[in-house]
């Protein structure tokens, strides 16, 4: 499981509605080169997550997708090897839960 993002969503309409993002290397060097653009370090104070990003609760790295994330998406945190599922919190934000 090396793709950072997989989706359970099958609806073509949902797929079309998703925002797309061009990912650039942010200097994150803790994974092999071809995967580096999918991750960045959380900068703490003043930092904010984009619609295509979610924080890994295990190692605190930001996981980035080339498209907007939605509840049910499965993401993979390569730096700590955790398999995660995106969920929407009561506050309306997205967060990732570990799937053991």
């Amino acid at each position: 499981m090396t793709k950072p993002v997989q989706s359970d969503t099958t609806s073509t309409e949902d797929e079309r509605a998703r925002q797309r993002f061009i990912l650039e290397d942010t200097g994150f060097d803790e994974v092999p080169k071809k995967y580096r653009k999918f991750y960045r370090k959380w900068k703490a104070t003043g930092d904010a997550l984009a619609p295509n990003e979610v924080i890994c609760p295990v190692c605190k790295v930001v996981i980035r997708s080339s498209r907007e994330l939605r509840p049910g998406d499965r993401v993979y945190c390569m730096p700590c090897m955790s398999r995660l599922i995106v969920v929407r919190t009561d506050a309306g934000t997205l967060e990732a839960h570990v799937a053991y």
Partner: peptide
């Protein structure tokens, strides 16, 4: 710190399945 990310990841993921 980068090394520790892998180590805590292994700990959580391995025990998460094993403790069950």
């Amino acid at each position: 710190i980068a090394d520790e990310r892998r180590h805590v990841g292994f700990g959580e993921n391995r025990i998460g399945s094993l403790i069950k």
